[in-house]
Every structure is written in C-alpha cells, then in structure tokens.
C-alpha cells in the first residue's frame, strides 16, 4: 500500500524531471521530488523510469552481442580454436600465437607497411581539408561557394567498391592517366599491378575521397570566429596573412586538434576495405597491411587464433594511440575528446 502511494506520487515527477535537459539548474520548487535525485537508489530509479530503461534493452542487447561479445571473443588469441567448436576456443595455449606472429617476418613487413601508409595518410589527408576550408571561406560569391562545397562532398557518398572501380579505370592501361603518358610519348604503365605505385594511388585517392567532406567542420568553426577579432587585427596593422595566422588558425584549432586525435585513433586501421579491393599479390610488398594480412590469415586460411592475436595487438595499439593523443592534447593545448 505504501509502495503504491509512493509510486503514484513519484511517477509524474520522475517523468518530468527526467525529461528536463537542464536538470539541476531548475529550482527545486518546480519539481517537488527533485531533491531526492542525488541520493536516489536503483530501486527507486527503476520504479520511476522503467519505461525509459525498457527502451534501452534492445540497443543494449545489440551492444552486448555484436560489440562486447567479440571483444571477449579475443580470448581465442590465447586459446586453441577449432572451427565449428566453441566461439571462445578449446584450451589455453598462453602466448603461443603472440610469439608466433612476433617471429613471423611477414607480420613485421605488413606492420611496416601499415606505419608507412598510416603516416602518409595522416601527412597528406589531415592538413588538406584545413587548407581547402580556408580557401572556400574566402569565396565571397555565395552560390559559387555552395557549388564548390556540394561538388567536393560528393566522393564521400560513394561505396568503397565504386571508388575502387573508379581508381582501377582511371589508372588502367586504356585509362586517362595512361592516355596522357602515351600522349607525352611514354609507354603505358599497368599501375594497379606495380608495387611502387600503390602508395601514390592509395594516398591520392584517399585525398580525393576525404578532402571535401573534411572541410565541413572547419567551415562551421570558421563562421563562429568573431568579426571583431579581425577588426582588431586590422587596426593593429595586420595584413590578410597575419590575420589568417593570428585569428583564423587559432579559431579553428580546437576542431583541428579533435580531428587529429580521431585520425590518430584510426591510424592502425588504414583503409582496410580499399586496400582489400585494390591490392593483389603483385602489390603485396607495399600494399599489404596488418588488417588485410590478418583477414587472409583468419578468414581465408582459417588460422583464427593467429589472426585474432594480430587483430588484438592492432586494436590495442589503436586504443593506446588515441588515449595518449588525447592526453597529450589535453596537457598541451587544453583540447580533448573527453
């Protein structure tokens, strides 16, 4: 009886306060039950908000099964795994697979390739959107500006398969690149078969795909810079270059730092899908990276434990990179993801 009464009194208050994004800033007179919130127990919370929690059940099930179960599934890196057997493997084998891949020359080869491609991608694809955004921002003609933006965003919406198809056609023996070569009197080159061209193809197509879309956040940040700052800089005698250096760039720094941290976090996973679509055994010397190697070892050759051990290392390096980048950035420039 008392419980029911409690329930009846609490319910409307619970719904109204829980739907109030400003929460604690509201005077408690507006929501009589508000004071109890900080010390609320789980029992009370569940009784008030069970409908809200019920909405979370299916999404939580999704995260549990398709995100956290695979994380636990990584134990097969330390356990013998039989295809068709238990998802979590059969018996402990300790660090056997880790030792195995650490002494595998191919692993170190793809590790080096990953570092090289990741570094090149970061070097070329991170600064480009900043520069393009600065240029677009200078366009005074609004319709022209919007046209340039619309066109440059377009590659972002293509399937990786289509992107790979466009690349293959572009650099094919009968494609435009070779037409230019032939026009200049050179012999056609089968670019897609040659390891020395893979990095160039990869990085330039990556730029083509990402530069335009990457400008969106910078353009948004640019519009938030206070015009008075430019005014003040002009009065102090700063020309356009100095205004860019002292006003514009500091204005977009938080955006740039945030995106840099995210890029560093994605460093190890460099373009798995694109490489998988574009590489072939002839270009393995430069194109094969950790993710493609572990794909072949695991899914193609059924060495699941071995591949899982490599994958776990890759994921841990990625996590370490993003955490340290975040920490360094918080200490150095005061910007961080969380």
């Amino acid at each position: 009886m008392r419980d029911q009464l409690d329930d009846a009194v609490a319910a409307p208050g619970a719904v109204s306060t829980s739907s109030d994004p400003r929460g604690a800033h509201r005077p408690s007179s507006v929501r009589p039950s508000g004071k109890r919130y900080p010390s609320r127990t789980w029992r009370q919370a569940l009784r008030r908000d069970w409908r809200l929690y019920s909405l979370a059940i299916l999404p939580l099930l999704f995260f549990a099964v398709f995100r956290y179960l695979p994380m636990i599934g990584n134990v097969i890196a330390f356990r013998k795994f039989e295809p068709g057997g238990s998802v979590l493997g059969e018996e402990w084998v300790g660090l056997r697979y880790v030792r195995l891949f650490l002494s595998d020359p191919t692993f170190w080869h793809v590790f080096t390739n990953t570092l090289i491609l990741g570094t090149l991608t970061l070097l070329f694809c991170f600064p480009m959107p900043i520069m393009l955004a600065l240029l677009i921002n200078e366009v005074r003609h609004q319709r022209l500006k919007r046209f340039v933006q619309s066109v440059s965003y377009l590659p972002h919406f293509l399937s990786m398969v289509v992107v790979a198809g466009l690349i293959v056609e572009l650099v094919s023996v009968d494609g435009p690149v070779n037409q230019i070569l032939r026009g200049a009197g050179g012999d056609p080159i089968a670019f897609i078969q040659q390891p020395e061209w893979f990095r160039t193809i990869y990085v330039s197509s990556e730029m083509w795909q990402t530069v335009g879309w990457g400008t969106i956040l910078y353009l948004a940040a640019l519009t938030t810079i206070d015009d008075q700052l430019y005014e003040a800089a002009r009065i102090d005698g700063a020309g356009r270059w100095r205004q860019t250096w002292h006003v514009t760039l500091p204005g977009i720094r938080p955006t740039a730092v945030t995106l840099l941290i995210l890029n560093i976090g994605a460093f190890m996973a460099v373009g798995f899908e694109k490489i998988l679509l574009l590489y072939n055994p002839l270009t393995y010397p430069t194109a094969d990276v950790i993710s493609t190697y572990l794909y072949r070892m695991g899914v193609v050759s059924n060495n699941f434990s071995y591949a899982a051990a490599i994958g776990l290392l890759e994921a841990l390096i990625g996590l370490t990179l993003v955490l340290s980048a975040n920490l360094i950035s918080r200490r150095a420039v005061g910007t961080s993801l969380w």
Binding site: T17, S18, D20, P21, R22, G23, A24, Y37, R40, W42, A45, D49, L52, A56, L60, F63, V65, F66, R67, Y68, L69, P70, M71, I72, G73, N74, I76, F81, V87, G265, S291, L294, Y295, G298, V299, F304, A307, A308, G311, L312, E314, A315, G318, L319, V322, L323, W338
Partner: peptide, 29 residues
C-alpha cells in the same frame, strides 16, 4: 540528463568507437 546510470549507458556506446572486437572474433561469432 538525470537518468540514473546515464553516464554508464553512454560509456557503453562510446567505448566501442575506440576499441572493437576486431574482424576475426566478429567473423567467428
């Protein structure tokens, strides 16, 4: 914002942005 356990529920989702089970365990699953 004042749902009990909200931070935890957000954390569950956000953590998966930076760490994932990886290809092989997913494939096996």
């Amino acid at each position: 914002k004042d749902l009990k356990g909200r931070t935890f529920l957000i954390g569950i989702a956000v953590f998966t942005m930076f760490f994932s089970g990886g290809l092989i365990p997913n494939y096996v699953l």
